[in-house]
Design a protein around this nucleic acid. Structure first.
Lengths: 334, 334
DNA sequence: ACCGATTACGTAAGTGATAACGTAATTGAG
DNA sequence: CTCAATTACGTTATCACTTACGTAATCGGT
């Protein structure tokens, strides 16, 4: 093609063409997954999904576009039922955009699709080594030949066939422990100093003190975490139970809690408690279903400012049914 | 920025943003050069400039866009006076787009600007090494920090300050000899077997047979070539005189021919001739001005099918004025 | 408490592209 | 020679954004 002979001079056109190919590849994956979503919506929806309700200008700044672009996109998303808009009580100029329940529910299950797209793109991007120009050429060839699309489809199939596995702590997963927990803490509350310490050095703060950390893994991808903290001899705390946004509904939360209880029993614990918050309703429902019982809050000597729920594990109420699979009810972090 | 934390997932958006930054950087360089041209026009204009008149669909295919895009762009370029359109005599469906004389003239001097953009972009692109993702990050940083724009501006200044120098043959420049000559041969005539042989191995076909090749160089960039072929003892042929599209008006053509004549005299030549074509009027004017005299064509035993002009050098008519500088009249290939 | 500056964000108009469609000219199989 | 298929390319509608501008709400200095 003539353009390629112009090398760096036509870079603008080449980048634009690649951009459009990538949108098309992502759209193909969404279509394949049966979700009516456009790749252009991703930045806004993903932002609302990860960060929670936000204003137009805030989103615009974070995704690097102008506010009219977000404003117009928001109008379309509102019409399509993905988001709602309410006016900020404190500042009537600001409109707060929020995912609709329906929208939230859909995005909660999109994780595997996003993961497939990310892996496909990463594979193609890694193939081209060297300078940007060389890497770009290889990337373009992968797109043109359909290799990128094929790889994304293949990853989709892998993710769909995979089941959630629970694995014990590995040092190389420490960053995932931090990332996944920081995500929901920042969204729902704030990262408190006691959180920061544990998340930045989980081995020292959990493992080395006689506790355990469990990871939920889907096809090699860490999608959830749960910590069992040793409070004193025989007394353990269930903490840092989190499933990554986008990977809900796969039963990861239940598997994590059940594995944590099993570990607690293996360690010969006598008391297992947890602290949480009323706003995390799906998580509370999960805790109740596996045998946790509500206690008057706050727990004496609670670690967390955000805790307004205190539960104790009662082994006799432990659900006897086996660990749930694909039919598990939707879960949330806690 | 939130988008960057999404890595490969938001690649589409990132490529688009880079594309727009590159267009903006190129436009800044054009504005700086005082030329009213938009970077989006580049692929079409450059194609017409290098390849000559072409149809809408031909251009669309070569620059990787749809024909309506080219059609609409052509309408705008026509309105702005850059191009004209005439209907193909052989096929009335086809509209042949052609640069206007005014447009051609402007593009003929844009080489240094393009060169500056290319060098700036190349420098930024080379800085980011490793996988495409890493290289992309470095490239984005260069764009955001203004380093790319600064580099282009700096290269512009260098190119503007530079003067054309004539250098003898270097093996590493053989590809330029091929590229620059192939460009005009393909545009005006066709590459004949005798051309192909000489262009693909200039050392064997020119240097080793007692001839010479000269290069016009502007700030390290090869922008023109000229060959002096040894026909027999004392008899030499001036050939392959070409200046790259975009670098006209810098006096490179005149400097090349004058240097070739000097080399011919240094070698003690007794006869210097050349073959050319009537369509290459600017080149013929140049040849006349340095002392070449028209002879009846074709020359007995001519190498080329395209030759309909045959000239002999007459040392007594050699222009006495010194090698022209910036004030030189516009030249063309021949 | 006031008023100019700033901020939030919607609307309008324009741009650069695309997909979809229509029409006229040309090609080629029978 | 005829007619269906193909080709060239213009037109229309649409999209995803931009710049420019307007309006209302809020902030902040006096």
């Amino acid at each position: 093609m003539f353009l390629h002979s112009q090398a760096e001079l036509a870079l603008g056109s080449r980048f634009k063409a690649i951009s459009e190919s990538l949108y098309a590849a992502a759209n193909a994956a969404y279509r394949d997954a049966g979700i009516d979503i456009d790749a252009h919506w991703f930045p806004v929806l993903r932002y609302l999904h990860v960060k929670g309700p936000a204003t137009v200008t805030e989103i615009a700044a974070e995704i690097g576009q102008t506010h009219p672009a977000v404003s117009q996109l928001a109008a379309r998303l509102r019409k399509a039922g993905w988001i709602t808009r309410r006016t900020d009580r404190a500042d009537a100029r600001r409109g707060v955009l929020e995912l609709s329940a329906e929208g939230e529910r859909k995005l909660d299950t999109l994780g595997p699709v996003w993961c497939a797209i990310r892996r496909g793109a990463r594979a193609a991007a890694l193939r081209g080594q060297g300078s940007l120009i060389d890497a770009l050429g290889a990337f373009e060839r992968d797109i043109a030949s359909g290799r990128l699309a094929a790889e994304i489809a293949q990853e989709r199939a892998r993710m769909r066939a995979a089941t959630v596995e629970i694995h014990p702590f590995r040092p190389e997963w420490a960053s995932h422990f931090d990332r996944i927990n920081t995500e929901w803490l920042e969204r729902w509350f704030a990262v408190e100093p006691v959180d920061r310490a544990m998340l930045s050095d989980p081995k020292a703060h959990v493992i080395d003190r006689g506790g355990a950390i469990l990871f939920a893994v889907l096809d090699g991808e860490v999608i959830g975490t749960c910590a069992l903290l040793k409070e004193s001899d025989g007394v353990y705390e269930l903490s840092k139970m989190a499933v990554e946004t986008g990977f809900r509904g796969l039963g990861a939360g239940r598997k994590l809690v059940e594995a944590a209880i099993a570990e607690y029993e293996r360690l010969g614990g006598t008391t297992l408690f947890l602290e949480s918050n009323r706003r995390l309703a799906p998580a509370l429902t999960l805790y109740e279903s596996v045998g946790f019982v509500h206690q008057p809050a706050p727990r004496p000597g609670s670690h967390y400012a955000r805790a307004d729920v205190y539960m104790l594990f009662d082994a006799s109420r432990k659900a006897s049914r086996r660990s749930s699979g694909a039919s598990a009810r939707r879960l949330s972090v806690g």
